[in-house]
Amino acid sequence: MNTISVITAVHNPEAEFLAAAYASLAAQNLPVGWRWEWVVQEDGESGAARAILPGDPRISHGYNAHGGVAITRNLALARAAGGLIKNLDQDDQLTEGTLARDIAVLDADPDVQWTASRALDLMPDGTTAAFGDDPPPGRLRPGRILDYWHTHDYRLPVHPATLCIRRPLLMAVGGWMAVPGSDDAGMLIAASVLGVGHFIGDVGLLYRKWPGQVSAQPQHTEAASWNLRMRLIRERAAAITEFFGPRS
């Protein structure tokens, strides 16, 4: 049996949102021979996630001292059993068929190392809005994500929260980048320099927009920290390109 590990870092969760994330995962139908596990890692030892979620044996709970989302995701990765790794934020929702589409693409073409898909912003009133300028469905050559990021004011052409990635590539780039915010963007950029990607044109994620989300907090866009994060991501990508890639 093949496993896709869905990783969720949890800190001060909203019960309604975390329950909705679980419901979206529980509704996934996987291809024959595949199973999912949900690796829920709590940033701090409050036990809040265990109190909210049902006793589903497919859920694996873990805890660590408060260290931020990147550290928490990486510790969840250490506990994950799957050859494919999918992130799901605690307040987001997968759409119907998301995991099956990820698996189908990666199963069909061993050269493809990661997938991303369309995302819709889920607004507080329940309406949705499109995210950015999606690329055409299909392959994304190594280096394309980085090129776009450089020429579009450090914006990504795909939503990093939709990423599904082969475990060896994720481990090779060191997991999620150890920065306070943009850790998923840094990881995606590094991985996309080394590995062929594939953009799935179907909507794969509802990305919840609400006042309590991490990216809505002032510290996420504070200029000094943001500039340092971008500098690290840029220099890391340049070093990977120089030493190892891009490769096709």
Rank of each mutant, 00 (worst) to 15 (best):
T127H: 09
M230F: 13
T162G: 11
G186C: 10
P160A: 14
E96S: 11
E222I: 00
A100I: 03
G174R: 03
R231W: 13
F199S: 01
D109P: 05
G181M: 06
Y148H: 15
T221F: 15
P168L: 06
D102A: 01
L205W: 03
H159S: 09
F131R: 13
Q219K: 04
D133R: 09
Y207L: 08
L163Q: 08
A239E: 11
P160E: 11
L163A: 12
M171C: 12
H198R: 01
S215Y: 13
E96G: 03
S225H: 06
P124M: 10
D183I: 01
F199L: 02
I240R: 00
L106W: 05
R208G: 04
R166F: 05
D153M: 04
A108E: 04
T162R: 05
R229C: 14
L194C: 11
D111F: 01
L228D: 09
V179W: 09
A108S: 13
A100R: 02
A185P: 01
E242Y: 06
L156S: 14
V179Y: 09
A190Y: 02
W114A: 06
H198E: 06
L156K: 07
G132C: 04
I233K: 00
G97I: 11
L170V: 07
D133I: 00
W149S: 05
D202E: 15
D147T: 10
A172G: 07
P136A: 13
D153T: 06
P218W: 12
A238V: 14
G195I: 06
Q113V: 08
Q217Y: 01
G204L: 04
H152E: 01
W210A: 14
D153Q: 12
G97M: 10
I233M: 15
E235M: 14
D107I: 00
A190L: 08
T128N: 09
R118M: 07
G132L: 03
R101K: 12
P137I: 08
P168N: 10
R231N: 12
Y207P: 03
P137F: 06
L106Q: 04
T162S: 13
L206N: 13
A191Q: 02
Q213A: 15
D121P: 00
A119C: 14
W210Q: 14
G97T: 08
F244R: 11
I240P: 02
D202I: 02
L206C: 07
V196G: 01
L206K: 08
V105R: 01
H152Y: 07
V173A: 03
H150G: 04
A161D: 15
V179E: 07
A178L: 10
R208I: 01
D202R: 03
L163K: 03
R229S: 12
V112G: 02
G181E: 08
